[in-house]
């Protein structure tokens, strides 16, 4: 299996196809799982990705690069391997990357979640011999509630704040999380406004045919509107900046899987924390492994050591993807909350 994919200082490399999967540095040929910047690295010569991620990728990548896109399930031969993309359910266009070589199949999950999200296609299991899975929330303390429950709580918070004469500001990552949020908001409660970075991603989503409720870019609003009772979807870095002043009395919230932990909620110093994540929780990670039923699992990014040890004890051959220690810094960067991509 090791010859199909190996870890280099540029990321996972497939020698038989001469390409990198989600490289960490610019390379000649990148096969990309989704458009978040820690997976789709700027500056590569050539990108191959799933068709539904086209709008987001073109929005964020260097224009002089060459892009190739495949529909979900469509196979393309690159060198000696066959590549295909399969829905990962993380954000619009996010994919698991299936790589087949001489009858052996490896699947790189990228970031993924199970269950419904109206803004992207639902994850589906892919049979494989080697599964390379993320483990951002790979501890049994993470157990997501059903979407309906989470959104009921968010909409209730909106109504309560509206009654108290406040403007709601909810923070989520600009690409993916914000649109997931928007799709769950109840637009009958009040008007929805967006931070510029969020609105740009909204446009890309809408161009890709994803239905989102009506939103207004805060920067495009003339005069002094009444913000009371409105919902503003913003990026986390806007919290506590002068940009916030215009909204008057606000109630703030953060939407992220990290909000499951009380210490993280308190550190963010927001009024509310909603546990809304686009990654697998403990239970769905295990379920995904079971459904894909690989002979070998490599675990990366997050609680890799814990997940690998647990899978081993359950009788599956699992190991930590070497070099993942290097990313430990990143892991907690997102704990502190700028990104939960």
């Amino acid at each position: 299996m090791d010859e199909l994919l190996r870890l280099t200082q540029h990321g996972l490399y497939c020698p038989a196809g001469d390409f990198f999967v989600d490289p960490s540095r610019p390379v000649h040929r990148a096969v990309v799982s989704h458009a978040h910047s820690d997976h789709a690295r700027w500056g590569c010569r050539r990108y191959l990705a799933a068709k539904p991620s086209e709008q987001l990728l073109r929005l964020r990548m260097n224009a002089d690069a060459t892009f190739d896109f495949l529909a979900y399930g469509e196979k393309e031969t690159v060198g000696e391997v066959k590549i295909s993309f399969h829905p990962a359910g993380h954000i619009l266009g996010s994919s698991q990357i299936r790589i087949e070589h001489r009858g052996r199949v490896a699947v790189v999950t990228g970031d993924y979640k199970l269950g419904d999200d109206p803004t992207c296609e639902t994850w589906e299991p892919v049979d494989c011999d080697l599964l390379i899975t993320e483990s951002t929330f790979g501890l049994p303390i993470y157990r997501w509630e059903p979407n309906a429950t989470i959104f009921a709580a968010i909409n209730q918070w909106w109504r309560d704040s509206q009654e108290a004469g406040k403007c709601c500001v909810i923070y989520g990552y600009a690409v993916g999380k914000s649109q997931h949020l928007l799709a769950g908001l109840d637009p009958s409660i009040g008007p929805i406004f967006t931070h510029g970075a969020v609105e740009k991603a909204n446009d890309a989503y809408r161009r890709s045919g994803v239905a989102l409720p009506k939103t207004t870019h805060v920067g495009s609003v003339d005069g002094k509107p009444n913000w009371q009772g409105a919902m503003v979807v913003a990026v986390p870095s806007a919290h506590g900046t002068p940009w916030m002043r215009k909204f008057g009395r606000v109630s703030t919230a953060m939407a992220s899987g990290w909000m499951a932990i009380r210490g993280n909620r308190r550190r963010r110093s927001v009024d509310r924390g909603f546990v809304l994540s686009d990654h697998v929780d403990w239970g769905s990670l295990l379920k995904a492994v079971e459904l894909c039923d690989p002979e070998t699992v490599w675990v990366t990014h997050g609680s890799a050591a814990v997940v690998a040890r647990y899978l081993n004890e359950q009788g599956r051959d699992a190991k930590v993807l070497e070099g993942q220690l290097r990313r430990e810094g990143d892991e907690d960067e997102s704990v502190r909350g700028e990104v939960d991509p």
Binding site: L139, P140, Y142, I261, E313
Partner: peptide, 23 residues
Amino acid sequence: IPDWLFDESYQSVGDLAETISLV
């Protein structure tokens, strides 16, 4: 879950009552 996994969870959460309520 095995005891070691509970301990890992506790290390991550930093609060016993909260770890129990989550796990």
